[in-house]
Amino acid sequence: MATKSEEEAKKTAYPLFVAPRPYSFELSTEMLELLRKEFDPPIIVAKFAEAVAGKKGPEIDAVGEKVFGEYGEEWMRRTLQLGEEYPDRTYEMLKEAADQTSELVFPLVLQRFIEIAYLSTQQFRILSIVENWARRLVYKVTDCYTFKTLQDKCGSEAASLLPCRHACLAMCRTGCQAWNLDATVDMDATMVKDGYCQFAINRI
């Protein structure tokens, strides 16, 4: 038997939020697979090993800047393209929030694409974000698959020059260019010295 309150409650209109479709808040696995196929670290490391064969010291870094730099640019360009083609609910909501506040492109939209770039090519499940606010976006990579592959393929001497950093730096710069952000990309820590790489994007 329904109580008095229940009967009265039924007569009252009450707004209820129901999601119009079963949202996914996570990244599309299909998109991650596509990116991995194109930008898997062993592919680019093999290319680098070929180009660098027989070279020494500063030459290695110059080759690294070219090979990894181009790779990094292409990596971000493709991430930007696929990231838009495969939106998830988190991104939709982020765009809504960015429209309403007109201040979230940096750092959050950029952060999303950087996360996609790493999660699709690395073996970790979370990109560790150190700072994300209006002036700085800082993240760190502790367990780098690219660096490990580099050590295996080209030896620790070439790896200790950290040519792969050009990929990450170019990737971040391409991301900044995509939204015309005035920003510098710096390295706060390197795998060789500190045991992890830390990249900082500073708004000017």
């Binding site: 329904a2 229940e6 409650a9 009252t12 009450y14 129901v18 079963p22 949202y23």
Partner: peptide
Amino acid sequence: RLKESDPREP
């Protein structure tokens, strides 16, 4: 998940 509960339902 994804929907609000109805406080009018016992």
